[in-house]
């Protein structure tokens, strides 16, 4: 069983690495793959605060936007390459997360109220950046140096794809590592019952803050790459729909399962994009109608996530396979 897992994992890694060769001449295919991975990274990072710690964070767009604006502004103003800029962006996101997290967790804002306040935070930043004309403002600010690898401004999607692959494996690894460490046990415990965790020696406040910081760093980092992919920065990067979608992908995929949110992102984002491509034209919003219905149905009938459905199916097939082999 363990060997089988390792083999299938290696197979998956290989598949992810060679996938672009099938789409080399297909620009749309590459955009699609990169988008899926982008959501995969965001949802996997969300799993740390949302899935493990059970805090329904709806502020992915806030950290993404901060990362994007930091990276973009550093490039525009100081000609600093995004290869460094994205890390600064991640740090800015972390700083903001600490600023927000300290009072939130200090005053025990949790559950619905945590969700609502994080959701409001995204809108606050969006409006603030529209008003802050020096950095943001209502028009797109285009990034220079198109076509230069030194400035992470590739003319093809393939390099971006691989950057996203690296980010994805990094955040999967971070997830895996946390889930086997003290922090992971503490997060899951406090996600289930804060008081019970507290009397067992869990520092609820600092554990939550650590989770928020790690999540914000990954999302901020991704935000910098996001700006480079789009080639501009705009306050609409602080997007509530994106933020709620990241959380929904995490929930639908399976909270607390390391690769659950990734599975959610791969299945749902590809479905959404394919629907959009095929139903476009006159019925431009039909894809969203279908998409949201599918989301609701999954949440209603598989509240523990679509990944558990796949796991169950896999286990059933596997045990049948073992039985058949024994029978022979």
């Amino acid at each position: 069983m363990k060997n089988l897992r390792i083999v299938s994992l290696l197979f998956l890694i290989l598949l992810v690495l060679i996938l672009p060769f099938f789409f080399r001449s297909n620009q749309y295919g590459m955009i699609l793959l990169t988008t899926i991975l982008l959501y995969g990274v965001l949802a996997t990072a969300w799993n740390i605060i949302g899935g493990m710690a059970g805090q329904l964070d709806l502020a992915a767009g806030a950290y993404l936007g901060l990362g994007a604006f930091t990276t973009g502004t550093l490039l525009l103003r100081f000609n600093l390459t995004p290869w460094i800029g994205i890390f600064v962006g991640g740090l800015v996101a972390v700083l903001f997360a600490i600023l927000v997290g300290l009072p939130l967790f200090r005053f025990k804002v949790k559950e619905v109220w945590y969700a609502l306040s994080s959701s409001a935070l995204v809108e606050v930043l969006r409006i603030a950046f529209i008003m802050w004309e020096k950095i943001g403002g209502p028009v797109e600010r285009y990034l220079p140096n198109y076509g230069s690898a030194l400035y992470m401004r590739f003319s093809s999607y393939i390099p971006y794809y691989y950057i996203m692959v690296i980010l994805l494996f990094a955040s999967l690894f971070v997830n895996y590592w946390i889930s086997r460490s003290k922090l992971g046990y503490y997060l899951i415990a406090l996600g289930d019952d804060e008081d019970a965790a507290e009397v067992l020696g869990v520092n609820v406040r600092s554990s939550k803050l650590k989770a928020l910081v790690i999540y914000a760093f990954i999302v901020g980092l991704t935000g910098g790459v996001y700006a480079c992919i789009y080639g501009f920065i705009h306050p609409n990067f602080f997007s509530s729909p994106l933020s709620t979608e990241v959380a929904i992908l995490g929930i639908v995929g399976g909270m607390g399962i390391t690769y659950g949110p990734l599975v959610g992102a791969v299945l749902l984002v590809s479905m959404r994009e394919l629907l959009r491509a095929n139903l476009g034209g006159q019925l431009e919003s039909l894809y969203l109608v279908i998409y949201s219905v599918v989301l609701i149905l999954i949440v209603l009938f598989r509240p523990r996530g679509i990944t558990t459905l796949l796991q169950d199916t896999f286990n059933k097939l596997f045990s049948r396979w073992v039985r058949n082999n024994h029978a022979e």
Binding site: L56, E111, I251, L295, L300
Partner: peptide, 19 residues
């Protein structure tokens, strides 16, 4: 869990907006 409850109403929100 409350997360599931919110997820459903968020789905509803997306649905109404799309409609």
């Amino acid at each position: 869990k409350y997360v599931t409850q919110i997820a459903v109403t968020v789905g509803l929100m997306t649905f109404l907006r799309a409609v």
